[in-house]
Computed example of a mutant assay.
Amino acid sequence: MDNSPTDIQQFDAIAPVCDQLREQIGKAIIGQQATLDLLLTALLCHGHVLLVGVPGLAKTRLVRALGHAMDLPTARVQFTADLMPGDILGSELIQHTQGSNERHIQFVKGPIFTSLLLADEINRASPRTQAALLQAMAERQVTIANQTHALSDPFMVIATQNPIEQEGTYLLPEAQLDRFMFSYTMAYPSEKDELAIALLRDESVLEQIKPVVTQQQVARWATLIRQMPISDVVAKQAVTWVRATRPEESQSPQLVKDFVQWGAGPRATQHLLVGASARAAMQGRPTASTDDLKHVIPAVMSHRLVLNFAASAEHVTESQIIEAVTKL
């Protein structure tokens, strides 16, 4: 990160603006603070999020509220078995040239050309359609008919899965799961929050949310966060924890050797470090600590661990594996 006055001012603005974002989004969303903080963290890292939760937990409403508060365009795609890649990316259509009999091919953009894309029930689409998101998530661009089209900056995919119904669904391949920076299971609201939700009658609250940041500011913040210094201690700790999830490593806990088939790859280390940096920036600190690593590691690791059949038989979970790893 440059030490220019402008960059310093931009960086110092991250924490207070995040507080304002929570306040504005709180007008429409009751509770779910952990989910909101995770989405903000991912957005500031150019990352993507997989949300797992039962219907009715305000996932769509949260994305819309985030878009209102950050002045970002949003789009929602309901994934179904008959959804095609062109329904997401866009397609080329033959159009009449106005004022003549000539025809031309025109590319019509799909809903992916937005800043916040809600991929609702992503596991209901076929693997072919799921794969259409791979290039967009990794490179923030899509290639159609040998033409490359840049996506918005920032661009984030927020995908959802229903943990109850599994009929007619397709498991996300490991390559696509690895593209998600975070995976998070949304919990039911507390009794106090659920009472407030039950009494909420005003459907116009989303329109009351005022933008507190611009799209250009968010893009600049993401750049600044990736330029934040990382201490050798924090970097080494991140590498140690990620390598400890691999059963073939000598320093791996016995729980990993017994119950993990495949551990996390190097991208997990990158996401762990940039996520910790973003959390530090959101709290007004210039560099990440090991506490920041511990805070983001469950969301970074849970979808990257492949457990074996013994883990299923013994009811060993990803959370237990992560807890054992972070004790090193």
Rank of each mutant, 00 (worst) to 15 (best):
Q251R: 06
A81Q: 07
I25K: 03
V233K: 07
S289K: 07
V218S: 06
A42N: 06
I112A: 10
M70H: 06
T287Q: 15
N146M: 02
P85E: 02
L118Q: 06
E23N: 15
G110K: 07
A281D: 08
T97K: 14
R103Q: 08
K59P: 08
A131T: 00
V54H: 14
R179E: 08
T80K: 05
T160H: 07
K236W: 00
A219F: 00
S204M: 01
L43N: 04
A34N: 14
I322K: 15
D19A: 15
R226T: 01
S302P: 12
A81R: 09
Q251C: 11
A175H: 11
S190N: 00
K327T: 12
M301P: 07
M1D: 12
P189K: 02
A244Q: 11
A310E: 14
A235P: 00
L171E: 09
D292K: 13
D232W: 00
I158P: 02
E318V: 10
V218H: 09
D87V: 03
I14C: 09
R61F: 09
V306L: 11
L200A: 13
P247H: 12
A288G: 08
S250P: 10
Q208N: 06
V77C: 09
P253S: 11
K257M: 11
Q98S: 14
V17Y: 03
L43F: 02
I197P: 04
E121H: 02
L66R: 05
S190H: 02
A288E: 05
A159Y: 05
A75T: 12
L66I: 01
L44I: 06
W221R: 12
P85F: 04
G99E: 10
V54Q: 04
Q261F: 12
L117I: 03
M301R: 15
A58L: 03
P266F: 04
S4A: 09
E174W: 07
A281Y: 07
A75S: 12
V239Y: 01
R279Y: 11
S91D: 13
I88A: 06
R201I: 03
L44F: 14
Q166A: 10
K294H: 13
F107T: 04
I164C: 04
R64C: 12
L50Y: 02
D87S: 04
A196R: 04
T129L: 08
P189Q: 05
G31F: 00
A311T: 00
A81S: 11
T41Q: 12
S183V: 01
R201Q: 12
M156T: 14
I158W: 06
S190G: 13
E139K: 02
E23L: 02
D82Y: 04
V52Q: 10
S231P: 01
G86I: 01
W221K: 02
E191Q: 05
F11H: 13
W262Q: 08
P266T: 10
G284T: 04
A125S: 07
T269E: 09
L72S: 08
L172S: 00
A299K: 13
